[in-house]
Structures are given as structure tokens and as C-alpha cells.
Design a protein around this nucleic acid. Sequence first.
RNA 1: CCAGUCGGCCGGGCAGCCGCGCUUCACCAAUGCCGAAAGGCGGUGAGGUGAGGAAAGUCCGGGCUCCACGGAAACACGGUGCCGGAUAACAUCCGGCGGGGGCGACCCUAGGGAAAGUGCCACAGAAAGCAGACCGCCCCGCUUUUUCCACCGCUCGUCGAGCGGCCGAAAUGGCGGGGUAAGGGUGAAAGGGUGGGGUAAGAGCCCACCGCGCCUCUGGCAACAGAGGCGGCACGGUAAACCCCACCGGGAGCAAGACCGAAUAGGGAUGACGAGGGACGUGCGAAAGCGCGUCUACAGCCGGUUUCUGGGCCAGUCAUCCGGGUGGGUUGCGUGAGGCGGUGUGCAAGCAUCGUCCCAGAUGAAUGGCUGCCACGUUCCGGUGCUUGCAUCGGAGCCAUACAGAACCCGGCUUACAGGCCGACUGGCUCU
Length: 130
Amino acid sequence: MTNEKNAKKAVGRLKSRPQFLAVREGESRRGRTFLLEVLDRKAPEEAPRVGFTVTKKHGNAVERNRMRRRLKEAVRQSAGFAMKAGHDYVIVARREVLKTPFAELTAQLAERIEARPKPKRSEETRSRKA
RNA sequence: CCAGUCGGCCGGGCAGCCGCGCUUCACCAAUGCCGAAAGGCGGUGAGGUGAGGAAAGUCCGGGCUCCACGGAAACACGGUGCCGGAUAACAUCCGGCGGGGGCGACCCUAGGGAAAGUGCCACAGAAAGCAGACCGCCCCGCUUUUUCCACCGCUCGUCGAGCGGCCGAAAUGGCGGGGUAAGGGUGAAAGGGUGGGGUAAGAGCCCACCGCGCCUCUGGCAACAGAGGCGGCACGGUAAACCCCACCGGGAGCAAGACCGAAUAGGGAUGACGAGGGACGUGCGAAAGCGCGUCUACAGCCGGUUUCUGGGCCAGUCAUCCGGGUGGGUUGCGUGAGGCGGUGUGCAAGCAUCGUCCCAGAUGAAUGGCUGCCACGUUCCGGUGCUUGCAUCGGAGCCAUACAGAACCCGGCUUACAGGCCGACUGGCUCU
């Protein structure tokens, strides 16, 4: 049990701009307070990686920091266990991340990460390029 | 007690669980792993430490770094602008002065030069810069009407009355010429203000006081202040309009810069060939010019411009050799105009000195998540006390704080900010 937990704990981070752009090509899932983008790296033996995107229009530096920290904590405590090995996840925060209770935020994240993509959505994901 | 002014300070606290960055120590793991290299790195345990008064805006001033390296002068451009002081420096700070506001404590103030020159002063108004007469006031000339007085002529006739003419005076209206800046009206501003004399009416035309200008004296380091005399007023405002004067300033910034260093394109040195300009020689040609040979970095370029001076660099092709830039890594990177406390000195900003402390270093960017208690705030309910309302006690709910996140570092300025604390002072009321 503890062994399994240790293995799951190693969630990597996405750091460079090309990595984020790559994940953008994958499928996207809409949550209530965030947008989740997922890409299968086709490397099942490697750990999953996560990245956070908080744009400037959603608040000043203090608020952006808090949004990122809350999401990070949510991934660390529980939501990260649901991530599949070899996949990259990018969480694009919305302003509601600041207001929603933490337990609710965690539950939403876990649900969206586990959820299978809805079949109708898979076609139109290609439209967001720009 | 109420109202207000100024200055300083804080800007949640404690505890628990799970985590993060940097760092110290111990043990385990390796002649191991990642990477081309440079370089980086794991696990467990214990400890230390970890955002602000504005970290913000990036508006000034510096340190530091580079721009190949220096010097001198002028111009241009930019900034500053009462005086003295503080400071590494400043547009900052302190102390004064002048002007303005407030009963007062106190607050505001880019505050040099307008007789060096240029420009502008809209609208309104008659007139806005060596000013100007619209209304009004006054004088003169001509003239209308009315009244009064004197005279002349005619008629009636006793004194006298009537009619006509004419001189003068007054009032009134008109036209023309002139005086006048007191009053009205316009304007941000109308060529000093108030009072008196004076005058046809007025006017610094004259006088007194105030203002202004100049001179002298006294006080002050100075800005400036005070006193006395003189000048009858000439000199409007605007310099955050150009400008003048004095002083200061090279530019760009830690994505600076240094070091290590792949692929690919490009770079440098040496040698050979070769030559944009010039000089000399020479061929062709009437000449202009076009060639050839030899010599020469002379032309040109080198931080906004120009001048001077030292110094440096320099086309293309081929061969050989050698290194620098980008991605990446390391560094720059925290002992500093440092914090706290004391003493001396100065009105103060500050300065000197002693003791003590080491106090963030991330780079997709570390301080977070959850819980409990307390403080504070606020809302509601109930009890008690007295003057509407306030004070106090008990209970419950809410928010669990405002503004806001270091990014090379300091000194300032500006802007944002829930709530609270302390001190000094001013005005008013009550009591003693």
C-alpha cells in the first residue's frame, strides 16, 4: 500500500513553453472552475506530468499565486492519484478557483481527470489553434 | 468631553496535521545515474531560516556592469532653478525667507530674469500696448422752440396796449469742433489706491497716507527684513511660450556582464592569388578617357555632431589552422551608504563613536492547504444603569481580513490601504 503511494507521488512538472503548446494539441475537458488539457505521451513507464496556466487577466500577482497554489495542493493531496502514467495534464485556471471551497475543488479535479472523454467532443477539439 | 492639526508605529497572534524553497549536520547509496560537454543529482532523521510598508508604479538619484581604450574644446539635446545646510547623489530631507489660506495648532507654494529680443492676450468691449472717447460730463460755434429784458418801426391811442423786427440772457433739442479717463458698461487684465484741494469738466495737476521704483544706513553667512531720504508713477500680464542667465548631465541596462560550451549557418589569423583611391612610369587616343606595370592602407570607418590629437580596423577567392554567438549549464547573487541598542554632538536633517546581530535568494518562479482557540471588527437578541443615546454584562451569527508577492542592490518620490495604537499641540464647553 505504501509502495503504491510512493510510486503515484512522483508527479512531474511541465516547465517550458513548447511542452505547454504540445499539450494544447491534446483533448480538452471543461470543468466548472478550470479547463483541463490532456495529452498521451505514448510513454507508459514514465510518471505523469502536470502544468498550470494562470493568465494575467484573471487577477494581480497575489491572486494568480493563490490560484496556482490551491491547484497544486489539490493535485498533491488527492487528485494526482487519478493521473495516468505517461500522460501530460495542463490545468488552465479560472477566477472561481479563488472562491470555491477546497474540498469541492479537489473533487471536481479528480472527477475530470478520471473521466473518459465524451464521444461528441473529440471531433471539435482541433478547432482551437490560433 | 467634543471638534481639529501634526508626527510616529502596527498592519493579526498561538497551537496541531500534511506539504514547499534554501541551508547545516549525521547515516545509507554509487570507480552510480542524467547530459555531447559544462555541470547537475537520491533516501532517512534532526535542526536553522523563508516577502512588504508600500515588495507596486518604474518617476528621480546612486552603486555595479558593459559599450575596444584615452584626452581637450565647442555646439546640440535634456534636466534643475528663493537662501543656507545634510548627503555617495538627487527633482529627496532639514532649517530659514518671500507670497497665499485658516480664529488657531498648522497647511499650500517650479518662488531666477519681462528697461536683450521675438511671440501671444481668444470672446466681450469704443479701446488690449509707444492704447482708447460708446454712453456720460464740460467748453466753443451755428441753429430749433419757449420765456424774460432792452431798443426800433407800424396801428389804435391819455398813461398805455397790440403786431412785426432785432440785441442779449436762460432753459431745451439738433448739428459740427474740441476737452476730459472722475462715473457707467465689457473683460482675467482698462496705464497705482483712499481722502482732500483744484478745475469749465476732469486728471499725480497739487498735497497727505498706503503701494511702487531708486539710493543710503542698520541687522543677517545669505534669501531678506527694518528705518530714513528721493522720485510724482514712468516700467500691464504671460518664461509649466520661444528665449536669456547660472549650475548639472556620455549611453544602455542583471534579459547588464563573466565563464563552460553541441548540431547547422556565419567569424578570425596566416599564406597565395588579387586591388577602391592616390603617386610615378608607360601603351592607345585629337581630347575626354580606357588599359598595363611598380609602390602605397593614402580614401573610408571607429560612442549625437563638428574640429584637433594619439591609437586601432579594413574588399574578394582558395588552402590550412583557430576560436566566439544561440539553445543548455554555472556565475553575477547578497557583509550592505546593513539592522538593533547606547553615548556624544547639532534647532533639525544628520554626523561621529561603542556594543551586538547575520537577517529570503526563487527562476513555469519557494511562504501553501485544512482545523481549533483567542484578539479585533460588525449585526441581532436579552438584562442592568442613567439624559434622546451611550456604557457594561451574557448569548448567537458573519468575516476569519484591507492594499498587495522579493526577482541585482541601496536612497527617495508617487500611488493603494480594512482596522487599530501612541505622543505633542490648537479651538470650544463643563467642573474644580
